[in-house]
Write a protein that binds this DNA or RNA. Structure first.
Lengths: 277, 277
DNA sequence: CCGGTTGTTACCCTGAGGGTATTACCGTCG
DNA sequence: CGACGGTAATACCCTCAGGGTAACAACCGG
């Protein structure tokens, strides 16, 4: 199993169109077509159901797609990690999303810096749901992120858990109450509700928290956020109300499974040692 | 990052000798030497410290070795899993080591067969410590095995925990006692002691439990085993004695992280549902 | 039924990567 | 200390995997 044909396969599986896939790969479509046929012959499996006007994945193709993505990620990660390992003064790259740290980033970094095994830290700012990709592709050594996330290939420890608050338009009828229940928030209009911020973000194509809060202000949705948010993002147009029975927000530190380097371990120690506080 | 140069790199890193590695790869050594140099150039990193009479991995080489193994495993696994996914009547391959099942294999299979999501099961017998390789390389869908094992890339659930018994030569002074403590067993000669059977197995190049028990009979070592062993392997020359304060033996079911197929899930259900019994 | 779109086949050609012969280097041992 | 054995690297050649272009075949929508 070589990597190039697999890369070609993934491109076709994503585009479901040989011509477009070939263009994306920077080659002509005949060699692409041949490469896929050869791959199918090698595996003894048909990967695509093709007519002249449609390309569809077979069940075997479906599983190869997910498996191939994993393998190709691992391949790229291998190169990147080796490159980074050669750095004479290696840095520890920590992936964080702005303000998605429960206010703990500074104390974690301070605690980490005090550890003898620590290295200079380089922060890698990222958007919703990018943390795991950065870890898997070898761009980052560790990440600070909220559950839930895809744990595949990663190890993680809980840093802290926070209660949830609902963010509502100030004029919303529920905003008159001091405290809400999950049922209040999740039942019906007005305003769409999602328990997990990243789902909302994906649906509304929002890239950061201020944008999301703007949508709340406009009355387009109601969201549950960690209780550390209101202090950082006070908004006249938004009412934050505790939701005691909502599942808590879990902040975790995650890292690639096989990377048990001393530096990563020290960071994990620093992050989890704040748990008691 | 292509896969072939990485495979070449792994061969050299294992042999630490270009000529032997080339032979193993079925190519001549000059192209191998060139491939490695090209890989180093591509990464911008030197992977080997070489003189004409010695080859050694640099730190960057070390990390590339472990990363490359993971990536190449994933690559092979992708192919194998796709092939298996095309099977018209797909089987579920379960990796087990003979008798390393706490006697639960039959009930698990029975419970599994009753599940509507179940598939025909094909058992893949394997030796000490092979389970995880079979899972990672796509030869098996699930494994029944004792902790501790390398969880990298795997998910696992505990099936059962067993108390430990020490296996001693019948003539051993400690055999006169009804029960032992961990301190009794681990302190000093006669007889080497290891808490984990697979370490012992690796050290003594033993492939199965009967061979291991033979070593115990001969007085070469003392080992802690799960309490389900004595009933299956009664030996006149061996005394089994409970060790209440030894850490218990944990039998687990494991499967590749990303494979959340209905059939695998059903097997996990069947295995873990026996936990209460 | 026709024209456009898309995957495939036929054919050619280049260069990545394999082979052989040779060199340069180093450690070892008479 | 010099000759030898072993090893990686270089020089040079050559083959074929894999890329390109042109033509074709199949299918769909109008």
């Amino acid at each position: 199993m070589e990597s190039r044909p697999l890369r070609y396969f993934v491109a076709v599986a994503q585009e479901l169109n040989f011509a477009r896939a070939a263009e994306r790969l920077g080659i002509a479509s005949p060699p692409l077509s041949r490469a896929i046929r050869k791959l199918e012959a090698e595996l003894g499996v048909t990967l695509f159901e093709r007519t002249t006007h449609s390309v569809a994945l077979t069940p075997a193709g479906e599983v190869l797609l997910t498996e191939a993505r994993i393998a190709l990620d691992a391949l790229d990660a291998a190169g990147r990690r080796a490159r980074r390992a050669a750095d004479p003064e290696p840095k520890l790259v920590l992936a964080v999303k702005a303000d998605a740290d429960a206010g703990l980033l500074d104390p974690i970094l301070a605690g980490y810096a005090a550890d003898p095994a620590s290295r200079p830290v380089s922060l890698r700012l990222c958007g919703w749901g990018e943390h795991t990709r950065l870890l898997r592709e070898g761009h980052a050594d560790a990440a600070l992120l909220y559950e839930p996330f895809d744990h595949t290939g990663l190890d993680a420890e809980t840093v802290t858990t926070e209660r949830r608050v609902a963010a509502l338009p100030a004029a919303h009828p529920l905003a008159r109450r001091d405290s809400l229940s999950l049922a209040d928030v999740t039942s019906g209009p007005p305003g769409e509700v999602d328990r997990f911020v990243d789902e909302v973000a994906a649906r509304h194509r929002v890239r950061d928290l201020p944008q999301l809060l703007k949508l709340v202000e406009l009355g387009d949705l109601v969201t549950l956020l960690p209780e550390s948010v209101p202090a950082r993002y006070p908004r006249p147009g938004i009412a934050y109300r505790p939701v005691p029975d909502a599942p808590p927000a879990v902040l975790a530190v995650a890292w690639p499974q096989q990377s048990r380097s001393a530096a990563t371990a020290a960071l994990v120690r620093a992050a989890t040692s704040l748990r008691g506080a």
